[in-house]
Structure formats: structure tokens, C-alpha cells
Design a protein around this nucleic acid. Structure first.
Lengths: 244, 244
DNA sequence: CGTGAACTTGAGATTTCTCAAGCGGGGTGG
DNA sequence: CCACCCCGCTTGAGAAATCTCAAGTTCACG
């Protein structure tokens, strides 16, 4: 809800209308399946708490991660008019709310503010997908890794999950590899390079941005494609905090 | 319009309403810019005739093609609520219609059939993008090339631009390379392999599918993600036509 | 303390890239 | 009507990036 309101001013009436169709949150454990790959459901889902990722798998088991979800993201808006052709898996314990597809459709037809907000959500999702395509097709491994770290950090911060220049980071190196189209080994080596250059610290499921401008430069990162509505400063402060 | 109706039954009233806001078609020559990268416009555009592609470019000039457009596709639906973060370039001479963004938005709020049709368009576009991500991240060069050929052929056929097992193919090998995240040289070598295996013939801007089942297998292709509304047979016939 | 998942490291194998040069055909101006 | 030219395609060969396989190592957790 917080997220929806970011993309369009919702009237009190609209907020109530949404709450009226949303079912009780369902908890999903870490590693748990939020949506099975290709699974049917009469409900759309919203991630209220926790982090998750969307993925597709090839016949031989190779997996591609299609995106990471943070609290406030709609898990399977695609179901509004089509089926779902991917799976969604929890990275941390999650709370997932449901909304019946048909009722959600009615809501969008009746409330222009909601329609606008949901349109923005899909369009931004598509925009992020295009940024990933550019990265996988044309960026070096180093730039790709750096770019994804920038993206995840900003999105987590927008979701209120960062403290200063650090955030929880439940994404393993193999997840990163599957998201970037790299092998786990190579991803590991690139991360070590970024660490040794003093750009980041990453361990124990926590990411620390040590040099944001440097990381942005390594990634050729421009946050425009995320369409963030930054209530904070444009860039995360690179704080005068000593490396632990 | 033909395309829109594919995804939702439109009433006569709705069809008239769309036609009322669409401006005169604008011709764009081959290689011409339909939408400049990041360019502002108060109009959304529809490709009426011709073929085109969406692309993004990195600072050093490396280009990633994000998708190919066939007649009936909306060029920049993203403009409905966001700006556009890519360019669109014509592959062949095109006719492009315009619709003022604000009027299009009103239309979608007033006509549920239109809303449904346009929602389907974005959702399918996003689905295709995910399929490309899977390919770029996790498929071999050979499977990637084969997959794209399958996709383009089916989409052109749906647009009425194929005759039997052949279609015009204005996409150069460098375009394919930029779409697949490969180099031009390597793309060339993969195409030669597909030719020598008797799967395709590709020359003089025409693609001939010689062995559809074989090509599908090479690509691990499943057309579900295209959400085609095939009025024809499920698969293109692999005809008993001799290789020219 | 024991354990397992995640992370590291090394080394050789592949894929894919880059550079560089030549070929071909169909479009066009003479 | 034909020769020329350019763009797209083809080929070769060495270089670079990345992968795979196979062992460790570390650390959070029970």
C-alpha cells in the first residue's frame, strides 16, 4: 500500500477499497515457494514483508532469476489477464497478501487512481527488465555485478530496509550469478575485486556501500529506470565510517 | 486495431472511440528513428505497417536490442504514465500512428474492453522480455539464435507477414547479435551451423523455416510466452518444398 | 564441537570476442 | 546496360572472458 501510494495519490476511498479485497497475510518461510513456476491461482499476491525473487528454469535445470522483490511489490500482477510463466521464491521469511483477481480487476476499472498506480507498477517492472537485458547482453561481468548491487541497494532503501549505507542482503552469490547470467565462481571473483577496490563490503548477509560514486561508475549506473520517488537525498551518502 | 482485438473483444463503440483519437499515420523510412532514445512526446505511437526494433545504448556505443516490433504493436505504451527510456528504429519503411497520451488514458478509464486489451499488451511485452532474459542469461548461443528465429517467425506470421514457411526478414545478422548479446561474427557462425543442419534458409532478407520441429528443439522453444491467438495450425507446416 | 551451506581458490577447458581481411550481390549512376 | 561501390556477410586466427570441475575453508547455527 505504501508502495502503491508512491505512484499515484490514492483517495481515502481507494485505500479502503483495496483493503476490502485483500485477504489475510500468509507467512512463507525462507526458501519457500510463494508462487510455483506456472502455477494457477485465482488470486494476485502482494509481498508485504520479506524479500523474494522471480525465476524461470530451463529443462536441464539452469535457472535464470528475473527480478528481486521487496516489500510492497506485487508478486504476480501478470495474473490480472494472463497466467504466470515464472516462479517466485522467498529469500527471507515473508508475509504475502492475496487479492482475488476478479475483484482486483473491478477495482482498477472503478478507481482511476488505482488504475494509474498499478499501471505504473507494471511499466516500471518492464523498465527494470529492460535494464537487466542491457546488462546481460552488453555489460562486462564487473559492471553487471556492480549494477545489480546498486539497484538492489536503492530498492531496499526505498522500501525502508537500509540504514545509512548498509542493508540486509539475503541474496547469495549463486543468486547473483543466476540473476546476472554468470557462473557462481566468476561472480565470486568479481565480488572480490569490488571488495579489494574498496567499493563494497559484503559478508554475513549484509551489504555495505563503501564508495557509492565508485560503485556507480563501475556499473555505469543511472537510477532513472527505477523511477524511485526518493524522499531522501539523490545518492546514498558515502559515510565517513571506517571499514569494520 | 487488428492486434488489439486479438486480446479482448472490442465493442463497435470502442473501436470508433480509438479511431477518434488516432492522428494521421506518419511514414518513417527504413533505418529511420521512430522514437529517439529518451525523447519526450505527448503522444503514444502504434506501428501500423513495417517492422522496427526497440534498443538501448551504452556510453561506449554497445547497443542492446530489447525487442522487435511488428504491425499492430504499440511502440511506446510506457509513455502512458512514465517517460520512455529506449529508442525505436525502423527496419523497413513504416507507417506510425499517434494517439495523444492524455486522450488514450481517458479512453482506458472509460472503456473496460480497451483497458483489458492494453493491459494484455504490456503484460505480454513483459513476458517476452522475461523470455529474452532467460535466453541471454542461460541459453547457449545456438539455442538463443534458434529461439529468436522461432519467435520472430511466429510473430510475423501472426501479423500476416508469412507465406507458409517463409517470411520477409529485414533483420541483419548484426541486429540479431545486438538482440542476443552476441558478437556479429559469432552470430554468423551459429547461423551457418543452423543452415548446414538444414533447419533454416536465410538469405536476401528472407527467412525460410526448413525444419520447424528441429528448430524448436534446438531452441527449446515453447511459444506459450507469446500468448499468440493462433487462428492457424499450432505449428507452421514443415512443407515438402525443395531447398531452392 | 559437529555440520552444512556458502564462499574461496586453483587450473585447465570452452565459448565467445576482436581484429583484420576478403567476398558478393544488388542498386545505382554514368 | 554495365561497371562500380557499399553494406552485409564470411572466414581465419589469436586473445580474452568466462565456465567447469574439484578441493578446500569459513562461519553461522544447532
Amino acid at each position: 500500500m505504501a508502495t502503491l501510494q508512491t505512484y499515484a495519490a490514492l483517495s481515502a476511498h481507494e485505500r479502503v477499497a483495496v483493503q476490502a479485497i485483500v485477504g489475510a497475510p500468509r507467512p512463507v518461510g525462507a526458501e519457500g515457494e510463494i508462487v510455483g513456476e506456472g502455477e494457477f491461482s485465482a488470486d494476485c499476491h502482494v509481498l508485504l514483508e520479506g524479500q523474494a525473487f522471480r525465476h524461470k528454469t530451463l529443462a536441464d535445470g539452469r535457472r535464470q532469476i528475473l527480478g528481486f522483490l521487496v516489500p510492497g511489490d506485487v508478486v504476480d500482477l501478470q495474473r490480472l489477464y494472463l497466467g504466470v510463466d515464472y516462479g517466485v521464491t522467498a529469500l527471507t521469511p515473508c508475509q504475502v497478501a492475496t487479492a482475488p483477481r476478479a475483484k482486483l480487476e473491478d477495482l482498477l476499472l472503478q478507481h482511476s487512481g488505482l488504475a494509474r498506480a498499478f499501471w505504473s507498477l507494471v511499466l516500471i517492472e518492464a523498465s527494470i527488465q529492460r535494464a537487466w537485458m542491457l546488462g546481460m547482453g552488453r555489460r562486462t561481468a564487473r559492471a553487471r555485478v556492480a549494477h545489480l548491487l546498486c539497484e538492489v541497494f536503492l530498492r531496499l532503501r526505498e522500501a525502508g530496509l537500509a540504514r545509512g549505507n548498509r542493508c540486509g542482503f539475503p541474496i547469495t552469490q549463486n543468486h547473483l550469478a543466476d540473476a546476472l547470467g554468470l557462473s557462481g565462481v566468476h561472480t565470486n571473483r568479481v565480488l572480490q575485486a569490488l571488495r579489494s577496490e574498496g567499493l563494497i563490503a559484503l559478508r554475513a548477509r549484509e551489504l555495505v556501500i563503501l564508495d557509492w560514486p565508485g560503485l556507480e561508475e563501475a556499473a555505469e549506473f543511472d537510477p532513472a529506470y527505477l523511477y524511485l520517488h526518493l524522499p531522501f537525498a539523490e545518492n546514498p551518502a558515502t559515510p565517513p565510517i571506517a571499514i569494520p
